[in-house]
Computed example of a mutant assay.
Amino acid sequence: MSAAPEATAGKAASAAAASCYINNVSGTTLNLRGGAGTRYSVVGTLAKGARLPCGSLGQGSATGQTYTACGGTANDWKTVRLNGRDAWVAAECVALSA
């Protein structure tokens, strides 16, 4: 197996993350958390109407909560990039855009 397909997939994933944004459509300031769940500490906020770049691509679960970065199904949490690292926001409060 050659390394080329993995390198190509990695570049595509990076490009998708770079063009994806999480938009606050909740009508209020949202808490950004250190993990996928309300039991994680607040690491920042996202103002009403503001947007941040999507976080790391992929899907996973943490403490029984599901999360996804860009796209996917109706998961509980989405990741955003905040100060160079991932943070989590409730999926029901945000919308994705390019």
Rank of each mutant, 00 (worst) to 15 (best):
A47E: 11
A62Y: 10
A74I: 10
L46S: 12
S61P: 05
P53C: 04
T45K: 14
G71Q: 00
R39F: 06
A74T: 14
A74K: 13
T66W: 12
C54Q: 02
Y67L: 01
W77D: 01
P53N: 11
V43T: 08
L57W: 03
W77K: 08
S56D: 09
G49W: 03
Y67M: 01
P53I: 01
T66F: 10
A50C: 14
G44E: 02
V42T: 14
T63F: 10
Y40M: 02
N75K: 13
V43N: 01
G60V: 06
N75V: 14
S41Y: 13
Y40D: 09
T38E: 11
R39M: 04
P53K: 11
G60F: 05
T45P: 09
Q65P: 01
S61T: 15
T45E: 10
T68K: 09
S61E: 15
L57S: 10
A62P: 03
G71W: 00
K48V: 11
G58S: 06
G72N: 03
G58A: 06
L52K: 03
T68A: 15
Y40N: 07
Y67D: 00
Y40K: 04
A47R: 11
A74M: 13
L57D: 11
S61I: 05
T66M: 12
C70R: 05
S56M: 05
D76P: 01
L57F: 08
T73N: 11
S61F: 15
S41P: 14
D76F: 04
Q59T: 14
T73K: 09
V42H: 07
S56K: 05
D76S: 14
T73P: 03
G72Y: 01
L52F: 04
G55Y: 00
G71Y: 00
Q65I: 00
G49F: 06
S41K: 15
S56A: 15
Q59W: 11
G37W: 06
A62M: 14
V43L: 08
R51P: 06
G72C: 01
